[in-house]
Each structure stands twice: as C-alpha cells, then as structure tokens.
C-alpha cells in the first residue's frame, strides 16, 4: 500500500508543484534577463524586483474575458491548449532529478517513473505537444494563426529528425533507452565530452523545437502578429504560454540528463547539481533569444536539411565505427 500508492502520490505532488513553480518563475526570469541584457530593468512593480509578477499575471489571466471567435472550430479551439499543456507536463514524469535517497528506512527514487523506453517517451510526447500548436492555429479561423500552425508543423517535422539522431548516438554509448541508465553511464565522463557534435546538434535543434528565437517562425511577431495563438485570450492563452515554458524547462532537464551528466557533480547533493545545470541551460536559452535575430524561414529549413541532419547522421556513423573498432 505504502510502496504502490502513498509514496508515488507524494512524489507526484512534490515534483509537479516544484517544477510548476519553477516554470512560472521562468517567465519572470526571462523578462528580467532580457531586460537587463537590453539595459532595462524588466518587471519592477509587483513585489521586490517584480518577484510577484508571475502570480499577478496568473490572476489577471484568470479573470480576463475568454473569447472564442465566431469563425473558429469550437471543439478543436478549446482542446488545443489542453493538448499542448498536458503533453508538456507529462514529460516531467520520466526525468530523473537526483540519485535515490534514503528516508524512513526506505529507498526513494527521485523520478516518478523509469520506463525502459524513457527517452523515446520524451521524443514521442514532445511531438504530440505540437498538435496543440498546429490545431490552435488552424482552429482559430484566422489566417495569421493558420500560417503559424503550418510553420510550426513544418519546423517540428524537420527538426525532430536531427534531434532524434543526436539522441540515438547518446543511446548507443549507454546502451539503454532509460534516462536513469544514461545518467549512471556518465559517472566518470559526461556525454558532452564524448559526443560534442551530438551535443551541439541537440542544442540547436532543441531550441528550434521550442519555437524560440532565432527559430520562432510559428509566432514571429513582425510577420504573423503572434502566429498560432493570435486569437487566444485569458486562461487558454496562459496554458499555451505555460506549455512553452514547461518545454523550455524539460529541454534544460533533458540536456542535463543526456549530455551534462545528470545529477553527477562534486560536493553538493545530486538534486542541487541537477537544478543548477538545468538553470544554466534555461539561462542560455534566454541569452540566445536576447542575442540573435530571427532567421528567415527558408534559411531555417536549409540549416536543418543541408547542415544539421547530415552532420547528425555522420556523427551517428562515426560513433558506430568507433564503437565497433575501438571498444
């Protein structure tokens, strides 16, 4: 009873509430960091240095009017943000946050589930999340939303390939799809040193999958006036927004798990290391957004099909060759 019900429920509650809290504050971090990089202050009014801003935003979104356009496909319009957020949050279930801890004479693992197909689970559900984007754009009956949706699906179909190839070279090194096995495999040397090419390819295509600048084609403000979520208001918009930041957090956690050694690190406890690394990746994402301009659409496609994908495939072949002849 305790093993099968109480411990998992407590773990679920703790992990999800901590993660969702951090994700809400990722919005604050983004505005603050962008502000300081652009020589502004960012949010300052609500609380000390705007620390209560995410809560104020949440309350505001909750009480705003919820508009459904006449032209919209109502059922799909309502379900699109739900698909987006649920496919994003479910990803948190398989991420290993730290090494097992001992409490009350029991060993407690710091992940909710460790399926043997962990990394495939993440790749699969990350793709499903993009259904939310595409359907949201299509169902609003707005041409900008429609264009945003089309662009989103084209981006996701293409960048998924190089991302998967980068992941496969890591899986080849550790010989398992399970994220926990991948982390334990990196105890002596991190994968970013063993697989530098895969690391770079994963970083670039991951940023593209997140739809963030310089790859924010689906929501390019100057071209599409906000893209797929242009007709959304109130909580529905907030759900899209939250899904985007959840994806960013999961991306940080995934880079940490696959390439930066997960919870491994000296002196501090594993969980702390995990969150420090994740924070650094999220910070890098924001930094990139503040630094680079948006790429043109055809250049985004060229980058994937003519550069990233061939490089990722070559890296895979090279990994296979090295493993065959030297290990």
């Amino acid at each position: 009873m305790i093993d099968f019900f109480i411990i998992p429920v407590v773990k679920l509650t703790i992990i999800f509430s901590i993660c969702l809290f951090l994700i809400a504050y990722a919005t604050w971090l983004e505005r603050k960091v962008l502000g300081h990089i652009q020589l502004r202050y960012g949010p300052m009014r609500v609380g000390w240095h705007g620390l209560l801003q995410p809560i104020a935003d949440g309350v505001k979104n909750f009480f705003k009017e919820d508009v459904v356009p006449d032209n919209a496909d109502k059922a799909v319009f309502v379900i699109a943000p739900v698909i987006s957020i649920s496919a994003a949050i479910i990803l948190l279930a398989v991420i290993p946050f730290g090494e097992p801890i001992h409490m009350f004479g029991k060993e407690i693992t710091l992940y909710i589930a460790n399926p043997s197909i962990g990394i495939l689970f993440i790749l699969g559900f990350a793709t499903l999340g993009s259904y939310g984007t595409i359907l949201g754009g299509w169902s609003s009956g707005n041409k900008y939303g429609y264009m945003g949706g089309l662009r989103a699906s084209a981006m996701i179909i293409s960048y998924e390939l190089s991302m998967a190839f980068a992941v496969i070279s890591v899986v080849m090194m550790s010989g398992s799809f399970s994220l926990v096995d991948i982390v334990t495999d990196q105890e002596t040397i991190w994968n970013c040193l063993r697989q530098p090419v895969a690391f770079l390819v994963f970083l670039i295509s991951g940023t593209a999958e997140l739809n963030r600048t310089p790859f924010d084609m689906p929501e390019a403000e100057s071209e599409l006036c906000c893209g797929y979520n242009v007709e959304y208001s109130s909580m529905k918009f907030a759900l899209f927004f939250l899904a985007e930041y959840t994806h960013m957090f999961v991306f940080g956690a995934l880079v940490t798990t696959l390439f930066l050694g997960g919870w491994h690190g000296p002196w501090l406890p594993g969980v702390v290391w995990f969150f420090i690394k994740t924070f650094l990746i999220v910070f890098a994402c924001i930094w990139v957004r503040a630094t680079f301009p948006r790429l043109r659409y055809d250049k985004v496609m060229k980058l994937e099909w003519k550069f990233l994908l061939p490089v990722a495939v070559l890296n895979l072949v090279a990994t296979g060759g090295v493993m065959l002849f030297f290990i």
Binding site: L120, L123, G124, F125, T127, L128, S130, Y131, I134, W138, Y146, G149, L150, S153, A154, I156, I157, E160
Partner: peptide
C-alpha cells in the same frame, strides 16, 4: 513506436496535407 510513428509522424503529415 505506435505513438511516435503513427500518432506523431504519420498523422502529423496527414494533418499538414489536409491543412
């Protein structure tokens, strides 16, 4: 695989074509 290949990839292509 059912989720990745069919629900993810193939249906995404079909939806893309329809749209």
């Amino acid at each position: 695989l059912q989720v990745i290949v069919y629900a993810g990839a193939i249906m995404m292509f079909i939806l893309y074509a329809i749209m």
